[in-house]
Design a protein around this nucleic acid. Structure first.
Length: 286
DNA sequence: GCCCAGGTGAAGT
DNA sequence: ACTTCACATGGG
C-alpha cells in the first residue's frame, strides 16, 4: 500500500506520492475509451466516470482533480485510478522477472491500471472485438449520446460541450437492435442487447463477479455471447482489479512470440499458460 | 477491390 | 481439441 497524500489547492485537489505516474499513458494506452485531451499545452483530460464529468491533469508526478470537487469526486478519483496501489513496487518486481519488462517500463513508466465501471467495460470490450481503437471510442460515445443521461455540467465558462453518462443495463435492455446498430456496434449489437437483458433482469449479478476467484469469475463472464478469453480478461483486469488477468490480443500475441517463442507460431493457450506462470499475479501489469 | 482492426461463435474435422 | 469462416464497419 502506498501512502497517497491528498490536499486541497484552491478549488482543486492534489494527489501526490503516487510516482511513477503518467496520466497520458494511463488514459490513452487503450484501457479506457471516454477521455479527451483538453489541455492545450498541459497534460489535461476530461472524461465521464460513473455518471460524473471528471477533469484531471498532471503536474510533475502529481494527479490534480480540477474543481469544483466534493468528497464524492475525490473518493471516486482515488478509487478509479487505484491510487492505493503501489505502482513503484510493481514496476520493481516486474523488472526482476524479465529484462524485456524493464525495457518496456523504461519506454513507458507510470501506467496505472484503472478500476472502471464493470458494465461499461463489459460493453466496451465486447465492441472491441475485431475493431479498431478509434472506432471503439466512437461506438461507446454514440451509445452514451443515444441512450445515456445528459450530465448537467455545473461549471461556469464552457457550457458548450454536452456530456452523457454511459447507459445502464436497464437502458440498453430497452434498446432495439436497430438503435444499437446506429451506434456502429455491428455484429456485436445482439451481444450487447443480450448482456443488458440478463443483467437488468437480475439474472446475472455482475458486481458479484468481483467476489469470485479469478478462474470462476472468468468462466462466468465467458457464458455471455461475445465474451471470450480476451474480452473476459479485459473486463477482469480493467474493471475488477484482477491483476493476474492477461488479455491476449493480436499485439500481445506478437510481442510474446517475439520475446519468448522465437517468433514462432504458438497456440494462444500456450502463451496464456506461459504468462501466468512467469508473471503470476502481475500478468496484467506486465 | 483487398486486407486489416484489442476476437468470437458456430460448424466441420 | 483443433481448424476454418463469417461477422459489420471503416480506414489505409
Amino acid at each position: 500500500m502506498a501512502e497517497v497524500v491528498v490536499e486541497s489547492t484552491g478549488d482543486d485537489v492534489r494527489f501526490s506520492k503516487i510516482a511513477p505516474f503518467s496520466l497520458k499513458d494511463t488514459l490513452m494506452c487503450g484501457q479506457a475509451f471516454r477521455w479527451q485531451s483538453t489541455g492545450n499545452d498541459v497534460c489535461a483530460y476530461t472524461g465521464v466516470v460513473r455518471g460524473k464529468v471528471l477533469r484531471v491533469r498532471q503536474e510533475g508526478e502529481c494527479l490534480i482533480l480540477e474543481g469544483p470537487t466534493n468528497e464524492d469526486s475525490v473518493a471516486m478519483t482515488r478509487d478509479y485510478f487505484a491510487l492505493d496501489v503501489d505502482l513503484g513496487e510493481i514496476e520493481r518486481r516486474l523488472r526482476e522477472i524479465d529484462p524485456a519488462l524493464g525495457t518496456a517500463i523504461d519506454f513507458a513508466p507510470g501506467i496505472r491500471l484503472l478500476r472502471q465501471d464493470p458494465w461499461e467495460a463489459m460493453v466496451t470490450f465486447i465492441i472491441s472485438a475485431r475493431n479498431s481503437i478509434p472506432l471503439i471510442r466512437r461506438s461507446v460515445e454514440l451509445l452514451a449520446e443515444k441512450y445515456g443521461d445528459p450530465i448537467p455540467e455545473g461549471r461556469n465558462g464552457d457550457a458548450c460541450e454536452a456530456y452523457f453518462a454511459f447507459p445502464s443495463p436497464e437502458m440498453l435492455a430497452g434498446a432495439d437492435i436497430e438503435g444499437l446498430l446506429q451506434c456502429r456496434t455491428g455484429f456485436k449489437a445482439p451481444y450487447i442487447s443480450e448482456a443488458a437483458e440478463r443483467i437488468a433482469s437480475g439474472e446475472f449479478d455482475l458486481a458479484g463477479v468481483g467476489d469470485l476467484e479469478y478462474a470462476e469469475a472468468k468462466s462466468r463472464l465467458m457464458e455471455f455471447r461475445g465474451i471470450g478469453n480476451k474480452v473476459a480478461d479485459c473486463i477482469l483486469l480493467f474493471a475488477f482489479g484482477f491483476y493476474g488477468a492477461f488479455p491476449i490480443d493480436v499485439w500481445v500475441t506478437r510481442i510474446m512470440r517475439y520475446f519468448f517463442f522465437d517468433s514462432k507460431k504458438v497456440p494462444l493457450r500456450v502463451i496464456s499458460e506461459f504468462a501466468h506462470e512467469k508473471f503470476g499475479d502481475l500478468a496484467g501489469y506486465a
